[in-house]
């Protein structure tokens, strides 16, 4: 009796190579735009911010920052923004009067973040943003405090291009 098979054994290699050829482009293609949520944070040991427009960071972000090597006990959100970037697109997110971040989608979740202080470049970080991975760009500020730019890949449920600021 002849054995029936959906795909003849002689064709298996052809199917395997076909799958190998089409899988990486399909995975890398990502027609959806890349969403990045960025937050400007002020780190201090003061219990309250002198600026009433500042609000404590989200309950998700606070333990993350407290578990980091940063020594401050309190963190206040100054501005929050969600940015949508299509492949190859560059957008500047104005975090404050003096601080801007220029995000560029290099494709395949590869993101370049250029930090600008008073429109002068400070540093550029380029990496593949993983799901749930947070990047913090930080530096010292006056009176023994610190500024932090916290950004991560946002989920599609986030509202696009939203800005939460005083």
């Amino acid at each position: 009796m002849k054995q029936l098979s959906l795909v003849p054994p002689s064709r298996w290699w052809a199917w395997a190579f076909l799958l190998l050829a089409i899988t990486p482009p399909l995975l890398a293609a990502g027609p959806e735009p890349l969403l990045i949520q960025s937050t400007l944070v002020w780190g201090t040991n003061d219990r309250q911010s002198s600026d009433p427009t500042h609000r404590p960071v989200s309950p998700e972000m606070l333990p993350l920052l407290r578990s980091s090597p940063l020594r401050w006990t309190n963190y206040f959100e100054i501005k929050h923004a969600v940015t949508s970037l299509t492949n190859g697109e560059t957008r500047v997110v104005v975090m404050s009067e003096h601080c801007k971040v220029e995000f560029k989608n290099l494709g395949g979740d590869l993101v370049e973040a250029k930090l600008l202080g008073d429109n002068k470049p400070i540093g550029t970080r380029k990496e593949k943003l993983k799901t749930d991975w947070t990047v913090v760009l930080a530096g010292p500020a006056e009176h023994d405090t610190a500024w932090l730019v916290v950004y991560k890949k946002a989920s599609p449920t986030n509202k696009l291009d939203t800005v939460r600021a005083p």
């Binding site: 201090t44 100054i78 404050s96 009067e97 600008l116 202080g117 500020a141 006056e142 500024w147």
Partner: peptide, 16 residues
């Protein structure tokens, strides 16, 4: 961290 130096870069945000 192996901190190398101190002070804020130019144009730090108006945190306070």
């Amino acid at each position: 961290m192996a901190v190398e130096s101190v002070a804020a870069p130019d144009g730090t945000p108006d945190a306070k």
